[in-house]
Design a protein around this nucleic acid. Structure first.
Lengths: 105, 105
DNA sequence: TCTTCATATGAAGAAATCTTCAGATGTGAG
DNA sequence: CTCACATCTGAAGATTTCTTCATATGAAGA
C-alpha cells in the first residue's frame, strides 16, 4: 500500500465522517458554546457530545477553553470554513437535489 | 439532531475516510489510469480497488471512461485538489511531525 | 462462438467505529 | 469539607464499514 498524503488525511477525514461531529461543527460555526448548550442544541446526550468533541479537538478542528465550571468550545475557522467551502462547491456542481455522495446512481 | 450542511458533507467525508480510497486518489493525481494499473501501484487486489472506485465515483471524486476492455479513471481535480490543499495547510499548522488527527494528546 | 483479458459484483466473516450507561473528575460556592 | 453543576471517561454491546473470495459481466479478437 502506498503511503503519503493519504496518511495525513485519513485521521482528518475520519474525524469529519460522522453526523454528530459535523452537526457540532455547524452548531459552533456562528459562535463558541459550552458542552451542555451544544448537547441541547443537537438534542443529544452530553456524554456523546463530549466524546465527539474530544475527537474533534484531537484533530484541531475545535478547541476548548475552560471558563469556570464550563468549557467553551470554538471551531478552527480557517480549516472548517475552508473545507465547507470546497464541499459546498462540490455539492452544488455534482449533487443534484441534496444529500451528496450517498446512495443512488 | 440538527440537519443541514452536515448531511451534504457526511457521504463526502465518509468516502474520503478510507486509506485505500485516499491512496487511489493520490495515485490518480498525476494522471488517469486503468483499474489494473491502480491495483498494481497500490499492491492491492483488483476487486478491492474496484469496490473503492465505485464509492469514489458515486461521490464524483473520480470518473471512469471505458476504452475498449479497459476503464480509465481520473480524478475530479477541482474538488480533490481543493480538499488536499486545505488539509495540507491544516496539517502544516496543526500536525507536528506527521500523521494528522490521530492518536496522542 | 470460444477464449482471454479487464472490470464489476454479491455475500459473509472480520474489523473498526458508535452509542449508551454508569460512574469518575473537575470547579466553585457555601 | 460537602454539595451541586459541568464535563469527562471506560467499557461493552450494537452497528457500520471493510476485506476477501468466488463468480459474473463486458469487450475484443481468432
Amino acid at each position: 500500500m502506498k503511503r503519503g498524503l493519504s496518511d495525513i488525511c485519513y485521521g482528518f477525514f475520519s474525524t469529519l465522517a460522522n453526523p454528530t461531529r459535523l452537526a457540532i461543527l455547524e452548531t459552533l460555526r456562528p459562535h463558541p458554546m459550552n458542552v451542555t448548550n451544544i448537547a441541547e442544541a443537537l438534542n443529544q446526550e452530553q456524554s456523546m457530545v463530549s466524546h465527539n468533541l474530544r475527537t474533534l479537538e484531537k484533530c484541531n478542528l475545535v478547541s476548548g477553553e475552560r471558563r469556570g465550571k464550563e468549557k467553551i468550545y470554538s471551531i478552527n475557522p480557517e480549516t472548517v470554513e475552508g473545507i465547507f467551502k470546497v464541499v459546498e462547491n462540490h455539492a452544488a456542481k455534482h449533487c443534484p437535489s441534496q444529500g451528496a455522495c450517498s446512495e443512488s446512481k
